[in-house]
Computed example of a mutant assay.
Amino acid sequence: MESMNIPMRDILQRILKRRKIRPRPGLNYNLEKQEEPGVSIDLDATLASMDTMEFSLVRENSTRRHHNEGSEDEVSTMADSLTSHQYKSYIVSMVHRLRANTDVQLGVSGEKVEVDPVGSKGTKFFKQRAMTYDADNIASCEVLEEKSTGKSVFRITYLISHDYKHSDFEADSEVCNEIVSKINNILELRLSPARKDYVATRAAKHLRKRDSLRDSFRLSKYTDN
């Protein structure tokens, strides 16, 4: 969330939207504190007043089942989504094609991702500059490579001047997975035009590639016959 003062009603609407749930007449939903089953929370109250970050989404006129592994996973996912907008920084390496990697501090919040050089390292010809990616311009964040050394490479793709660019970073695999998960939670909640367009474009390319391979297979089979 952008602020701990956000009303729980807004959080409920975001959860329904993320889960692609459309309330219908006679089919409404409430939120309950995870530790207080059967007690609907006041949706006009703020997140800051809840004293917890773990909630359950419950359909009206139904009751929650006892805890099980599946429900705990759902709660964990919701908690990750709620805390993903909180600022956190990481020390990672920025990957360059034609020069040595440079250490940077990667700061991630719900509004932006900041890249700041660590120390004054640099050569006579190159010095890493600070960069900022607005969250609404970030199209994707994904793991590219998992290395046997325990490190992984991840990529942030972003929109700039009507074109998609990307930056690659390397970090310990655990840190890498945390960053990718954090950024993707932010992207899912914001649903920016840049994100929607990028996902739609990739899906269209995948579909064209699949159709092309299918047509090639059919042509090859016809020729063989």
Rank of each mutant, 00 (worst) to 15 (best):
R22E: 08
R22H: 04
P23C: 09
R24P: 00
N28K: 07
N28L: 12
Y29Q: 02
Y29N: 05
N30S: 06
E32R: 07
Q34C: 09
E35L: 08
P37G: 05
P37E: 05
V39N: 11
S40Q: 07
S40Y: 09
D42S: 03
L43A: 00
A45W: 00
L47F: 15
A48F: 06
S49E: 02
D51K: 14
M53F: 10
M53P: 01
M53N: 08
E54G: 01
F55T: 06
L57H: 01
V58A: 06
V58L: 10
T63Y: 09
R64E: 08
R65S: 11
R65A: 12
H66Q: 11
H66R: 11
H67R: 15
E69R: 13
G70T: 12
E72N: 15
E72P: 01
S76P: 00
M78R: 07
M78N: 04
A79H: 14
D80P: 00
D80L: 12
H85D: 10
H85G: 04
Y87T: 10
Y87I: 06
K88R: 15
Y90W: 14
I91D: 12
I91F: 14
V92Y: 04
V92P: 01
S93N: 15
M94K: 15
V95H: 09
H96S: 06
H96K: 11
H96P: 03
L98F: 13
L98N: 14
A100P: 03
N101P: 05
N101V: 04
N101K: 13
T102M: 14
D103P: 10
Q105S: 14
L106M: 08
G107M: 03
S109V: 02
S109E: 02
K112R: 14
V113P: 03
D116F: 10
V118Y: 07
V118E: 09
G119A: 14
G119L: 13
S120N: 11
G122K: 09
